[in-house]
Simulated assay, not measured.
Amino acid sequence: MNQGEVSYFEHRNAPRGSNVPGRDMLYEIGSITKVFTTILLKACAQDDYVSLEKPISEYEYLEPLHHNPYWSKITLQHLAAHTSGLPRMPANIKPRNRLNPFADYTEELMLSFLSDYNGEDRIGTYEYSNLGFGLLGYILCRATGCTYDELLHKYITGPLHMTSTSIHLSAEQKKRLAAGFTSTGRRVPHWDLSVHEGAGGIKSSVEDMMIFIQSNLTANASQQNTAIPHYFQAIHSPVSLNGTDRYLGWVLEKQPECEYLWHNGGTYGFTSYTAFDRQTGTAVVVLSNYCFASMYILDILVSQLLSKWRKSGPMMPVDEIGKQLMSELRNLHGSASNR
């Protein structure tokens, strides 16, 4: 998208007999879900369901955590900024199906792990955590008495008329859900995120995601469209946590000639990327039913998790295709400005 003009490009082999347009196909967007979860956090805080700065130990429905002093030092903002000290994944995840590793990880398992966990020495340090966002989504649902899909519809997809975006799909939506494939061409099952829904459970279409990203751009316009919830803009600026400015949900990419907000995602059969430049009004969405993982890499990951491996590290590298597209869009914007 460049200055409000949207262009779609696709490269695919459509299943025999399929008449679903490419822009209407549904994909797992993986960790881009975290941006949606952070928007929901801001919306729920605005409606007084939760507090951004209230210690997690004070939420009555998290009784298993009340005895642990670590949780009196952690807020929902820490979870949203990946600065809570929580690891990327819980050490007690033991998937029965390595191709669908989150499916049998329950609320009870998560709370059991968290009740005795202590990451106090890492509070304030950036450590990308799927577990943290799983907990964040769980808390938002408990605080409101709603499912994640109900919150999504109330605050985001309903107001924006995004009819192809949810975690649990209708029968009609399932017919439009693309199959996922590994880099070896093997078809793999769709992921069930269970209690980790807020970390990566959303499925969406490129058309819906363009509505979403355009709404983020419009939220920054001088004459804001009143149909765009103002809590979209609330996560476009950093917050101060433990003396350091941190972004909630989005990631800031700074280059000599520009800066933009981005996030990507990956499940076992899908890869996704989205970014937008507030200065030039350009944005890009890339959705693919192809993942660069291999069985060998996944086996290593699972074995590390089962041996209680934990290691600080960044999120997935910036998608180079996405960076190239953002660069091309900025060039188009510059050419148009010089005419």
Score class of each variant (00 low, 15 high):
T182I: 14
T182H: 10
T182F: 06
S183E: 11
S183W: 11
S183K: 14
S183N: 11
S183G: 12
T184Q: 15
T184P: 12
G185I: 11
G185F: 09
G185C: 06
G185A: 14
R186G: 07
R186V: 01
R186W: 05
R186A: 08
R187L: 02
R187S: 05
V188F: 02
V188S: 01
P189V: 07
P189R: 07
H190C: 09
H190M: 10
H190G: 07
H190P: 01
H190N: 15
D192Y: 15
D192R: 13
D192L: 10
D192S: 14
D192C: 13
S194M: 08
S194Q: 12
S194A: 15
S194E: 14
V195W: 10
V195T: 09
V195P: 02
V195Q: 04
V195L: 13
H196Y: 14
H196P: 10
H196C: 15
H196G: 07
H196M: 15
H196T: 15
E197G: 05
E197S: 12
E197K: 07
E197M: 11
G198K: 08
A199W: 06
A199D: 11
A199N: 05
A199L: 12
A199S: 15
G200L: 01
G200I: 02
G200R: 01
I202E: 03
I202G: 04
I202A: 05
K203C: 14
S205K: 01
S205N: 06
V206G: 00
V206M: 02
E207K: 11
E207G: 06
E207M: 08
E207Y: 04
E207P: 04
D208G: 00
D208Y: 05
D208N: 04
D208L: 04
M209E: 02
M210P: 00
M210G: 03
M210F: 00
I211A: 03
I211K: 04
F212Y: 14
F212K: 03
I213Y: 03
I213A: 02
Q214H: 14
Q214G: 12
Q214N: 14
S215V: 05
S215N: 06
S215D: 04
S215Q: 05
N216V: 10
N216Q: 15
N216W: 10
N216K: 12
L217G: 00
L217K: 03
L217I: 15
T218H: 11
T218D: 13
T218Y: 09
A219R: 04
A219Q: 10
A221S: 15
S222R: 11
S222H: 12
Q223P: 00
Q223W: 00
Q224A: 15
Q224D: 07
N225K: 08
T226G: 03
T226P: 14
T226D: 13
A227M: 11
A227T: 13
A227G: 08
I228P: 02
I228D: 02
I228N: 03
P229H: 09
P229E: 10
Y231Q: 11
Y231R: 11
Y231N: 12
Y231M: 10
F232E: 02
F232R: 00
F232P: 01
Q233L: 09
Q233K: 15
A234S: 14
I235K: 02
I235P: 01
H236P: 05
S237M: 09
P238C: 08
P238H: 09
P238E: 07
P238S: 12
P238L: 11
P238W: 10
V239T: 09
S240H: 05
L241S: 03
L241R: 06
L241A: 07
N242P: 00
N242I: 00
G243I: 03
G243M: 03
G243D: 04
T244Y: 06
T244G: 00
T244L: 06
